Amino acid sequence: MQISEDIINRKGARKGTDIPRDVWTLLNQGEIESVNLTEWLAVNHMTLIQHVLPSVGLDHYIDDISSEITKQKAESGMKAIRLIGQLLDEVLHEENEEKQAEVLQAFAHHVSDSVRCWAAYMNKQHLSTLEEKLAYIQPFAADHHFGVREIAWMSVRESLSHQLDQSIEYLTEWAKSGDENIRRFSVESIRPRGVWTKHIELLKQEPERALPILNLLKSDLSTYVQDSVGNWLNDASKTQPNWVMNLCEQWSKESDTKATSRIIKKAKRTICEGESVNKSLN
């Protein structure tokens, strides 16, 4: 299908109701990527599976998967992605290894970011070791699309939190990557509080466990990574403010760079807000 340059180069609507009909149709057919969060959230995954599954010979699973989507009221957003990815992971176990590999390859490189998000959850979580899960998810963590990268860390966060020390050991190597997306994943995936995910209680109480990763990235040149490190420390400051203040003071002495200063500013924002409130009350 020939997609017009206007559609390919669009900026994306601010509201779901403003998404042009032709764009919305192409998104739900899996023919184009979303370009912003509004479009990403607007994709109807019930419609999408009806277009995508037949293309890989899985149309005989459409009714069962659609039924479960309806049952769980999960036609769009992260809930739909998680559910469909997990359901597809389960049904692929009924297929031979050649078919499994074919589908995973097709979905992992699909033009639709939503389909690649499904694939990020098709990682045989109940069978794979932590090392295997990270090896599987790495291409998704490096994906050019923001939505796929977010789903990538969400899909393995529970496994990472259950094997925290081993996870930090592996992710410390990721923090040395030349790819800013991989470095960012090493931090974002184990944020103490995270976004739309369960908290990692151990890191809320003992944030120093993540120092091997944090110290590597304290002066990272990528603002994408800087934001993640700053947000990580801001999370930690809500339970261990003194530790965060001491670390920021140490970093400011060790690394007099704009990157480190920017991270420290983000790291201390909750602490500074609290100080401002206290001053106003006094």
Rank of each mutant, 00 (worst) to 15 (best):
D59V: 04
V56E: 05
E68K: 15
F107P: 02
F107E: 00
V111K: 12
K99Y: 01
A80P: 07
S67N: 13
I69E: 05
I49L: 08
L53M: 08
L104T: 00
G85F: 12
T70C: 00
H51V: 11
K71Y: 12
Y61A: 08
L104H: 03
S112T: 06
L92K: 12
R116Y: 12
Q105R: 12
T70A: 02
L48K: 14
Q105T: 09
N96R: 12
V91R: 14
E98M: 08
N96M: 03
N96Y: 03
I81Q: 09
T47E: 14
V56F: 07
L88N: 07
H109P: 00
S76T: 14
H93P: 00
L92R: 11
I84M: 06
A101G: 06
L58K: 13
V52R: 02
D113L: 04
H51W: 08
D89H: 04
P54R: 13
S76V: 07
L48I: 11
A74T: 11
K73G: 00
M46R: 15
L83C: 10
Q86Y: 04
A101W: 09
Q100Y: 00
V103A: 05
A74Q: 10
H45M: 03
V52Q: 06
A108W: 01
L88S: 05
H51Y: 13
F107L: 04
F107R: 02
H109Y: 03
L83S: 10
